[in-house]
């Protein structure tokens, strides 16, 4: 009913935003009352329930048991699996937090370059020059490759003894034989570097779309006022990109927090379990060792962390807006 009243009282004038027009149209064409939007939402909601909501609730149930789907008895464990995560004497406690630390480190190291480098790239690619499209394609290209491909590729490039990188460094006179895939801190340099190379094209494309949304007139007006390039960037480009920045930051943080394939293929968690990420350990525990109660409990703890992180990101950008 609310929508109808709105439709009656809100004139669809030239000044109203696109969203208002949408509401007005819906209200005026539907004679079936409030049911219509729900009917339109129903198919998605059904899929959402089947593939997200129900498994999530079921997962919670699993996490309260010693669960192996093939064994007839799945003893109830209460909060046991969660308590194990916080006790050093359990098989999962120490390893889980080690893997969470690995995930946190990777996220911390990888997000800043993944936010800044693609932005710089997008600014360049947004300019007018010959071959612009070719360069856009080139920088986006690695993103098309699967993680298995880039993993195997870089494993051999980065190998300490037979790798291309050290061999090239050697030719430049740097004979350090750096252990890119087997020793800290180099493993982190490798994992972050590979990930930036691999995914920067994706973030750059989103930035590019955002840049193209910023009205040219604002730059022209600034130019008339004699603004410097830096001023234009700081006062027009960045504020104009704010919604895109929120999106890119959130997506990048979540993607980094879910890192799995690069560690699996390039470092195999080495040295020791230093680079075994949370997702990697959860998968090992749940799908490799069939200890699914533990694995789901860990997933939920990870989820809580990710939710908190997302909230923090939104809060951060909201403050910027004010």
């Amino acid at each position: 009913m609310a929508t109808q009243r709105e439709a009656l009282t809100t004139p669809a004038s030239a000044t109203s935003s696109r969203r208002d027009v949408g509401v007005a149209t819906t209200g005026s064409t539907s004679g079936t009352g409030g049911l219509t939007p729900y009917l339109f939402l129903a198919p998605y909601f059904l899929l959402f329930t089947m593939f997200v909501l129900a498994p999530a609730v079921f997962g919670l149930w699993i996490s309260l048991h010693e669960w192996d789907f093939l064994l007839p008895n799945k003893p109830f464990a209460g909060l046991g699996n969660y308590i194990d995560l916080f006790s050093s004497g359990s098989t999962t406690g120490a390893f889980f937090w080690q893997s969470m630390r690995a995930t946190a480190k990777f996220t911390l190291y990888s997000v800043p370059p993944l936010l800044v480098i693609p932005l710089l790239l997008a600014l360049i690619l947004n300019g007018q020059f010959r071959g612009r499209t070719v360069f856009r394609a080139i920088y986006f290209a690695p993103y098309v490759l699967g993680v298995a491909v880039i993993g195997v590729l870089w494993q051999f490039v980065l190998d300490a003894n037979i790798g291309l990188l050290n061999s090239m460094l050697g030719r430049l006179g740097i004979d350090a034989n750096i252990a890119w895939t087997t020793a800290t801190p180099w493993v982190w340099v490798s994992l972050v570097g590979v990930t930036v190379w691999w995914t920067l094209g994706f973030n750059a494309v989103i930035y590019l779309a955002g840049l193209q949304e910023i009205p040219r007139e604002q730059y022209e007006a600034a130019a008339v006022d004699g603004a410097s390039a830096w001023n234009k960037f700081w006062h027009i480009t960045l504020p104009g990109l704010r919604p895109v920045l929120v999106l890119v930051t959130t997506l990048t943080v979540l993607a980094s927090a879910n890192m799995f394939g690069q560690s699996l293929l390039i470092t195999q968690g080495a040295p020791g379990n230093e680079t075994r990420t949370a997702i990697m350990y959860i998968a090992e525990e749940g799908l490799g060792n069939f200890r699914m109660g533990n694995a789901t409990a860990m997933s939920y703890v990870l989820t809580v962390f990710l939710v908190l992180t997302s909230i923090a990101i939104f809060a951060f950008f909201r403050r910027f807006q004010d």
Binding site: Q155, A160, N161, I162, G163, N177, A179, T181, A183
Partner: peptide
């Protein structure tokens, strides 16, 4: 043995007379 032998590096080195 060199330090920090990577996955399959021992195998590749053998194939390459190293």
């Amino acid at each position: 043995s060199p330090r920090d032998v990577g996955q399959d590096a021992d195998h590749v080195a053998f194939q390459n007379n190293k």
